[in-house]
């Protein structure tokens, strides 16, 4: 299957990546080849498989419902690129118009 330039750009939008024009030709070629390769899975007879497999514990264990100390706010904020009034700061994004 050919993964077109438009398809790469659609995926990039979904994945929140802005790709430079010079990145696109190689991504189109690589993704087309990889998608062709993994498409072999479609030929495997999986009619006998009922559920998706699971790994690890069969049920998620529950812990006691007790209040515990978490990460202190100052530590959580210490590596943030921008902090305002004890909170992570980002550009405005609410469109009130």
């Amino acid at each position: 299957m050919k993964v077109t330039r438009d398809e790469v750009l659609r995926l990039a939008r979904l994945a929140r990546l802005s790709l430079a024009d010079d990145e696109l030709p190689k991504l189109e070629a690589d993704l087309s080849r990889i998608v062709d390769y993994v498409a072999e899975l479609g030929k495997v007879d999986t009619s006998e498989v009922s559920d998706a497999p699971r790994v690890g514990p069969t049920a998620a264990p529950l812990r006691d419902d007790e209040v515990r100390v978490g990460l202190p706010r100052a530590a959580a904020l210490a590596a943030a690129p921008r902090v305002v009034d004890g909170a992570f700061a980002v550009p405005e994004f609410v469109d009130e118009s």
């Binding site: 993964v3 990039a12 991504l27 993704l31 899975l41 498989v49 559920d51 998706a52």
Partner: peptide
């Protein structure tokens, strides 16, 4: 991008769900 592709509408069952079945 590949992971986004195999999870995206229209491709999910053919790629992601089928890979889960082959994993089984």
């Amino acid at each position: 991008l590949l992971g986004t592709f195999v999870l995206s509408a229209g491709y999910y069952d053919a790629y992601y769900a089928q890979a889960q079945r082959v994993r089984a």
